[in-house]
Each structure stands twice: as C-alpha cells, then as structure tokens.
Nucleic acid binder design. Structure first.
Lengths: 243, 243
DNA sequence: CAGTGGTCTAGACCACAGC
DNA sequence: CTGTGGTCTAGACCACTGA
C-alpha cells in the first residue's frame, strides 16, 4: 500500500530517472491511482505537493506535465531580530535612537502612494547582540493607519514586535539589496563609511492602505541563509558569520 | 455551504478580530466541521493551509493553537538569470570569461567538506542585459560528482542552465549577503572597487555529495523583491532598479 | 488511556479548457 | 462536449501525545 509520500517520491524518482522527461505528460490521476492501488484523492495529494514544489504543472483537461525546468524556490523565514539573536545564543539589547512625528519624506510618499498631508512616526532603533550592533532599523509608521503608534513609547521593545501584534495579517512587499554605509549607518553599526551592508526594505499594507515602511541595515558580514530541496521541509535559518 | 477557502478566511477573520487570541486553543476539527456544516476533511484542509502559512500550530491530542506571533515567511523564486533579464524586456547575452580545471581552493574544500584531491571545473561567466553587465557568476563544479562537466564547453550557455538539467532535484543551501567589489568584480561589472554589491552564494548537494558551488555578484543597485500576505499566493519577482 | 490531528477510501459533483 | 483536475463527503483507521 502506498501513502501520498510514497507516490510523490516515486514520481520524483521516475522524473529524475528520465522515465518521464521535462515537458512530457504523465498519466492522469485515475490511472495512477489504479497503478498504485490507492484512491484518487491520495494521488491528488501527492500531485498537489509536486505542483507546490514547482516540479510539475497541471491543467484541467490537458493533464499533468513535468516542468521543463524545475522551479527553484526557497521559503525564507523573516526572523524577528530578537529571536534571531537569542537563537544564536547571544544576549539581546534594544536601543531607541531617535523618535519624531512629521510628514513623510517625498521619496516615501511616492513609494507608498501616500497623500502628502499624512503624518508619520519616524523611529530609529538599534538591535544589539552581546553588546555589538546587529541591526539598525529605520522605521516609518503611518499614523492615519495606526493611530495608536502616536503615543506608544517604543523605548523598551522595537516597533516590529509591536506592529506584528497590531497588524498580524498584512500584505507585505519585501526587498533585499546591498548598500554602502553612510555616516549614520557607519556610526550606529560601528563600521566604516562605505562598507557594504546587507539591507532589507519592507513595506506593509492593510486593507490597501500603507501602514509602515522599514529599512533594516545589518552589521557587516551578515548573511541570510536557507536550505531547500526535495526532502527539506522549508527549514530556514538566519545566521551571522561575524569577525 | 462552505469551501475550505471560506473556512480558512473565516478562521483568519476570527483571529484578527480577536475572537481567538494568540496562544489560545481553537475548537477541534469535529466541532468546526459541525459548525460549518462540512466534512471534517474540508476543515482539515483549511487548517493544514493555516499551518503552512504559519498562522496556527497543531499537535495531536493537544489541539490547534493560534501562534503567539504569526510566522513571517516569503517564498522566493530564485530566477534563472536569462529568464529574469528577458522578463524585464531586455536582451540577454552571455560571455564565458574564464575556464580551468584544478583542485578546489582551500576555503572551498572546507566549505563543501571535499577531499583535497578532488578536481573542480572553475568557470567565470558574465550575464548581460541590453549589453550592460548584470550578474557575474563564479562557479566551481565537482568533476567527481558531475564528470560530464569536464568536457562541456559552456561557451554558449551558462553552467546554471546546464546543471539544472543534470541535477534537477538537488539539496541546496543558499545565502544572501552584501560585499564590496574587488578589482575583478569591479572590472567585470563595470563598477568601482569598493562598491556594495548584492551577492548570492549557493551550494548544491546530490545524494550527500557536493556537486557545485556558485557565487553570484549582481550589478550595483540590484534588488530581489517579493510579496507575501494572506491572499498573495507566493507571487515572487526579481526586479532591477538601475541608474 | 483517550482525545486530537493525520491519512486514506470510495464515491460524487463540478469547473474548466481542450478537442 | 468530454477528459481532466479540483473539491467535497461520510466514514474509517491509525499515530501520536498529553492528561
């Protein structure tokens, strides 16, 4: 008797063994179910996972096809910086560097499609691991979308931890890039001006309205690491190679 | 009547509406199925997706719990550079800069846990978009694992496209970081020495053996962008903000 | 030991898109 | 219009694990 895992593994085996070649069609669910001696639902579940893994494509009436090129996709867990630091066995410390309220800068208005009248809470925060600067957080919060952010102090915990409880199911656009440290970043992170820093920018929407924008600058040498593969069930880790 | 989508949406609604708070237990599948008027399997499918989305946790006998903090996870499609460039409407060009065969450098032996005797094919390739340098690829291929790589020319297409067909179901460790351009990178990518560049490093294993290691240097200003959210079904895009 | 989720079955109806 | 996958049902058995 076959479980959906056995079926999935067998199909991967037949594809990697070139029994079923890229682009070719594989038998339909009814035939597969017969040949594996299972119910169609079991085959369906196996196939659904193969679709999710980017190995096959399915179209009603047309059938199931081996992808010409398997999709390479990683699932990245975006860590809460506190957890990331503590999981690395370091002590976490948080410092609020700067806080103000005012209009959004023009580039941010454009980026978030905000009216120019909107008020934002601007925060700069530093997250430290064992006393060393780990991540610099430049944060803007739309006070029209999150009025409670006007009076919250943010002196004990960072806005990320607070916001994720306020807006747990937001739409997010995230981007990863590299940038040179300016004077502020260099000063806060204890690196030289011009050093290459890993940077994450994230903008968050709730019911179509921009809630917050954040730019995270990581310490020099930071890496975001993850594994993937046929068996690997999206175990993802963020580690830091320092020194 | 409710589909698994309706049930999933309703559960998210009840969590975000604070009917079910973080950490609390929600009713079991039988009760939920009764209350929604569906079969247990339908509720089960909805709950399975909520687990996958990082919104709830389930344990046999214990029950289903709202996560204290919802998991933030992105699914990133790692693009084939050719497709990425062509999808941006640019023309793709590939240049093989350098090719040699020899032992792995020491740092690579250590990193991949290779015996020091192993022979590697070393390639340097440049991928261009509309004639401008887009990505520099430094690639090492383990000839013990992939003997066919010894004689393949790699003068028309890059090793990535070739390898993905040779080893479609590998285990991969990928990391994202920032680094300063050295003389070689600056020369190939047409930037200044010291410029901050976005970098991907990827090592690939097949049946426990290291197959290849690659270091991808992206042009200055490159971003890897993705969206996620409750509705967003892992649409992922890599874009380039240039200039 | 008993309650929970995990999986499977045999069957059904349906949506969709090729033919 | 028909073959395919997508979903749902009612029921069953089982694995795990917490009480």
């Amino acid at each position: 008797m076959s479980s959906f895992r056995d079926i999935k593994a067998d199909i991967i085996r037949r594809i990697s063994g070139e029994e079923w070649t890229p682009g070719s069609r594989i038998p339909n669910e009814i035939d597969l179910a017969r040949s594996y001696g299972t119910a169609r639902a079991t085959v369906n579940r196996a196939m659904a996972e193969l679709v999710d893994d980017g190995i096959v494509e399915r179209r009603r009436k047309a059938g199931t096809f081996v992808r010409d090129v398997p999709l390479r996709q990683v699932r990245l867990s975006i860590p809460i910086v506190r957890s990331e630091i503590e999981q690395n066995g370091a002590s976490y410390r948080y410092v609020l560097l700067q806080s103000s309220i005012g209009p959004a800068p023009e580039w941010l208005q454009a980026r978030l499609a905000l009216p120019s009248t909107v008020e934002m809470r601007k925060l700069s925060c530093l997250h430290l691991a064992d006393g060393l600067p780990y991540q610099l957080e430049d944060r803007w919060i739309n006070l029209a979308a999150t009025p409670a952010a006007r009076s919250f102090a943010f002196d004990k915990t960072g806005p990320s931890e607070w916001l994720i409880r306020q807006i747990p199911f937001s739409e997010v656009e995230i981007s990863f890039s590299a940038a040179s440290a300016g004077p502020d970043e260099a000063h806060s992170l204890g690196c030289a001006v011009g050093d290459a820093l890993f940077r994450i920018e994230r903008q968050t929407y709730w019911t179509g309205q921009a809630v917050t924008f954040v730019r995270l600058w990581f310490h020099r040498g930071y890496r975001l690491t993850s594994r993937y593969g046929p068996g690997t069930d999206t175990q993802s880790a963020a580690r830091t190679g320092r020194g």
